[in-house]
């Protein structure tokens, strides 16, 4: 018990407080000026916006993937199941350069998008693509166990009450998955907001346009602007804590129905 608390404090809690103390070392006005500068705001917008869109896309494909893995038998299922965890196992920098190469205008995928007038790398779309890669397993792996444990008798009950398959899925199955779905969404979103490695290679990193918030912290650090770096970090930490609270609240809410 004592060991746990000591290690936790030394590795996690005290270091985290350092960033808050550093940011608090400025006057509120200074803090506010950095936290809400045009460049910072653009960076938050990109980080939050791209993370949100990626989480939405992952919610759709994630639930389909979980459904296929739990409910269907198909060739290659074991392989697909293992692959879903690739983003957990693959170093983010590797994912970053691979995605950048694929989706660059002359890349394997990008060359087909260019004639359509779609630019999928070195802009916010590229950031979103990287965050889809990073976030997918969060959604799949949160929904999958809930789907596997779900009793099929409620679906039979709905059918015996005259509901067709689409009504059963829309009104019974999916609402029952909602808490797990929201949790997976929130986890993918939280991870996406802070993601760095897979994003910077495909982002383009243009200030005000394709510069994510974590990159802004690094840029401030490289200019030895430690207080400014800490300020942006505090804003991001606040968002992380909020997401943690939201996830806990979703789970507490879901337990009410069990």
């Amino acid at each position: 018990m004592g060991v746990t608390l000591t290690v936790l404090s030394l590795i996690v809690l005290i270091p985290l407080s350092a960033v808050v103390l550093k940011a608090a070392n400025q006057s509120p006005a200074e803090f506010w000026a950095v936290a809400t500068s045009q460049r910072s705001l653009a960076a938050y917008r990109l980080s939050f916006g791209a993370a949100f869109v990626a989480a939405v896309i992952n919610s759709i494909f994630g639930v389909l993937t979980a459904w296929a893995l739990v409910r269907y038998e198909f060739p290659g299922k074991t392989l697909i199941n293992a692959l879903v965890d690739l983003p957990f196992a693959l170093p983010t920098a590797v994912a970053g350069i691979a995605l950048a190469t694929l989706y660059a205008p002359n890349g394997w995928v990008g060359q087909f998008l260019t004639p359509l007038g779609i630019k999928a790398a070195y802009n916010p779309i590229g950031v979103t693509i990287a965050l889809i890669f990073i976030g997918l397993p969060f959604v799949v792996r949160t929904i999958e166990p809930v789907l596997r444990d779900a009793a099929e008798d409620v679906e039979e009950a709905a059918a015996s009450l005259g509901a067709n398959r689409i009504d059963t899925i829309l009104r019974i199955v999916l609402p029952a998955l909602a808490p797990a779905w929201l949790t997976g969404f929130a986890m993918a979103f939280a991870r996406g907001v802070g993601e760095y490695g897979s994003v910077i290679f495909i982002a383009g990193n243009m200030p005000y346009k394709s510069e994510i918030a974590p990159l802004l912290i690094i840029i401030q650090l490289e200019q030895f602007e430690y207080a400014r770096a800490a300020t942006i970090a505090v804003v991001m930490l606040a968002v992380s804590f909020t997401m943690l609270l939201v996830i806990n609240a979703i789970q507490a809410w879901a337990r009410r129905f069990d």
């Binding site: 009793a151 008798d153 409620v154 039979e156 009950a157 709905a158 059918a159 015996s160 009450l161 005259g162 509901a163 067709n164 019974i172 609402p175 029952a176 909602a178 129905f257 069990d258």
Partner: peptide, 20 residues
Amino acid sequence: ASAADRRVGFVFQQYALFKH
């Protein structure tokens, strides 16, 4: 005929109520 078309009322051992 599918269950939905039969107009039977079915009561399950574990109730199978819609929790939400």
